[in-house]
Computed example of a mutant assay.
Amino acid sequence: MPSIPVTVLGPAESGKTVYLASLFRRLAIPRPDLGFHVQLPPEQSTRLNRIYQQITSPNVWPDPERRAAIWEWDFACSVRTARNETYSPFSITYLDYSGEHLTEPDGRVEAGARVLRRIEESEFLLVLLDGVKVLRFLEGDLRLMEELVAVFGHMLKSKGIVHFVITKWDVLAAAGHTVQAVMDCLLQHPDFKDTVETLLRSPGGAKGVRFIPVSSVGLDFAALGPDGVTMVKKGGFPSPMNVEIPFMAVLMDLFAAQLKELERQGTPESQQIAQSNQRLSWVRMARDRMPLVRTFLRAAAARSPVMRLVRDHMAEAFLQFVETQAVAYSDRVEQDISRLRDRMLQATSEKEALAGLLALFHAKLAEFEAEHPGSRLIKKEASWTA
């Protein structure tokens, strides 16, 4: 089973471990609205369950990770079919660590050096923004940006795909903010604006930069206390919101970024076709030139460890993804999420399960983007991802 490495970035108290515990709890059970679930090694699932129990306990929040703590969480994406067979076509490995490794790095500490090496080598980065600090930023407190400058310095050493995950979205939603409004305000700061523009110009920016609002506890479980900093629990049960969207985006962006790279390396004729009709023309062209796609996969595998995984374990699913995109953009039938989920549950092999997950994730991300317009910034150029 191929494993896609993802590094989770963020200053201390940005909610990295709480987010991963909430993600695990949301995906640990095959839920009707998702159709897939995740499995972790026993030690990891036990630890994340303990953290989640602290989240649900009255008046207690999980303790921040000690500086020396570094964890890798192996989320195996699994589909349990209607025949009670389980297929796990890929996994995502998240690196989680104390935020002080970024804001107060110590090159003499081997653990810190390991984190920084992983960031530089990563092809997928999730940058967590603390929603409470974002709210204060919207009100004129610029300390958030001072923390993020250190994070950005390390982040830009990577050539990977970067997305911003805004945690504690329940706080921002309660104040009446939208993703578009938050993103527009952040981009008014020159450091943030220049960083995002640098990302969009980088090789990993082909798919764009997402701003994904998540709440590890849901909209009604906790509220901002009188001090404007502490979250106070209101009782009831957590209901995580959007925590699975970054998980889905990683797989989709892996495939879509390689399609974009193939477009850039295409002939003048292929570029003209892509520019004349953007998404549909490009995917149809790629579908009709499968030998070119296969050649590209071999070349990309020589440059990228993640693409070696695609070549060795996901090549056929990648080619099928090209085919299904042509159909999806032709008639928009792929937006029927319920039908896609039911089809995925009829899978009889890992290959079919992966193809079903790709179609489902594509539709779910389209639904998310419709609900949160402006949540994805794309470089201003002709592109099938536009």
Rank of each mutant, 00 (worst) to 15 (best):
P64M: 12
E65F: 11
L23H: 02
S88F: 03
L377N: 09
A302T: 08
L116C: 02
M248A: 07
P305G: 07
V127T: 12
V109T: 09
E352T: 04
I92P: 00
L358H: 01
Y19P: 02
G266K: 08
V182G: 07
R201A: 12
R26A: 13
A300K: 13
V179L: 01
N49A: 15
L34A: 01
S270M: 13
Y94K: 01
T7S: 02
I166M: 14
T198Y: 10
G374L: 04
V134Q: 05
L357F: 01
Y19A: 07
R210G: 10
D253H: 08
P89M: 12
P5L: 05
A370D: 09
G374C: 03
A382S: 05
F24G: 10
F237E: 14
L280F: 12
A317D: 05
Y94V: 01
F164H: 09
L129M: 07
L23T: 04
R201H: 08
V60R: 15
G35F: 06
S88A: 13
D220Q: 08
P105G: 10
R117Y: 03
E371A: 11
P305C: 08
L259D: 00
R108D: 11
G35M: 07
E263N: 10
E139Y: 08
V250A: 03
A256M: 06
V38M: 06
L224Q: 06
V162G: 05
G99Y: 07
T178V: 04
S57C: 13
L9I: 10
T178W: 08
R287N: 09
H37Q: 09
S98N: 15
S78F: 10
S375C: 15
L319D: 00
E100V: 13
V293M: 10
P291Q: 06
H362E: 07
S22M: 10
P305F: 06
G356M: 03
D312V: 04
V310Q: 02
A150K: 11
S330D: 13
L280T: 08
I337R: 12
W169L: 13
W61P: 04
D106G: 14
Q271R: 15
S3A: 07
R66P: 13
A82Q: 08
G107A: 15
W61Q: 14
A150C: 04
P64E: 14
G131T: 11
I29G: 00
E123Q: 12
S349W: 05
G140Q: 01
L377E: 10
P64W: 12
D191M: 05
Y329H: 12
P305S: 09
F247G: 00
V182L: 11
D33W: 03
M344I: 01
A223G: 06
L135D: 13
A206K: 10
G112L: 02
T178F: 09
L251E: 00
V151I: 14
P213E: 08
K168Y: 06
I245N: 03
C185H: 14
R341M: 04
E269I: 03
V283T: 01
G140N: 02
M314D: 00
L254S: 02
E72S: 12
V232P: 01
E367H: 00
P5Q: 02
E104A: 15
K234L: 14
A347F: 02
I92M: 07
R117W: 03
R114S: 13
F137Q: 06
M252E: 05
S338M: 02
Q54D: 15
D331M: 09
P5T: 01
D141I: 10
L126D: 04
V115M: 12
T103S: 12
P89D: 11
S270W: 01
L219K: 13
G235A: 11
Q44F: 13
